[in-house]
Amino acid sequence: MADANTQDKREIPYVMAINEGVHQIMQELDDTFLLGEDVAGVGGVFGTYRGVLDKFGPERAIDTPISEKGIVGLAVGAAATGLRPMVDIMFMDFLGVCMDEITNQMAKMRYMFGGAATLPITVMTMGGAGMSMAAQHSQSLEAWLIHLPGLKVVMPSTPYDAKGLLIAAVKDDNPVIVIFNKLSLGIKGEVPEESYEVPLGKARIAREGTDLTIVALGRMVYEALNAAEQLAELGINTEIVDPRTLQPFDTDTVIQSVKKTHKAMVVHEAVRFGGMGGEIAAQIQELAFDYLDAPVARIGAPFSPVPFNPGLEQAYMPNAEKIVAQAKELLDR
């Protein structure tokens, strides 16, 4: 039998952390239900919902037709009448199919109704490239979502945050979009067995440093950590901020870090133009202009759809090498 000490250090993959979070929150809140394409019978195409049907039955784990507008619209109506829907949109790219339900219904109903409606909806979806899934199954479209008042948006990088942010998202009485990352599914990390929440709207310092602040979104946290090790060999001590929640954004943590390091870089997998990096860079220059020794650097994907060919895809995605190269330029090394 494991003692408390080894339990604390239990490491499980990102996919299992999500699965455990789904099970625990559905156990805790009996007004929750799981809805989506192939979430029940096969437990989700990524395995994130395995066992949910067996544990909670067909009334709370529902396979739907391939019908994203119907799924999200149903969630809006169910939430407005008192339930707490957890819906899965298999790939983030499919948000395009249900963008009216996200944009014009879910995000706005509370405001339009003068506060009369409460919509505790969690939309779980999978973003990111790196698996040769090509242009319609690989995007990072968080910029679409952070622009919509009424929505909260989280993007967990670690297994710990995947479980804790998911549980917090479901408990939150606002609509929350949880963007998981498909390339991170196998990444292992420490995850407590018990249920816990990672508070929405709070960033995490993924690595402490003094010379450069990198704000990295989602899986890019790992690329930034890798880059930081390489930069350390050059004597550059990098601080990495993982925002975890993109909306509402924890500006304070970023600004505090930049005021310490005087240099900032934003890294995300989404296309650079119009990506969240622009917003973060703008906030840094508004709130910490006098502390900056150089313009805020931004790394994102080039202005192109995600390619299929593995070589092209690797060239397309931001990675540690690109971060190191940009950091050297920024620090004039």
Partner: peptide, 22 residues
């Protein structure tokens, strides 16, 4: 709710019906 998006009320009603059955 009335709805400014044509057709958008239908899936929402389906959700209310889901609640009723649930």
């Amino acid at each position: 709710g009335a709805n400014g998006i044509v057709g958008a009320g239908l899936p929402i009603a389906v959700g209310a019906a889901f609640s009723n059955k649930f």
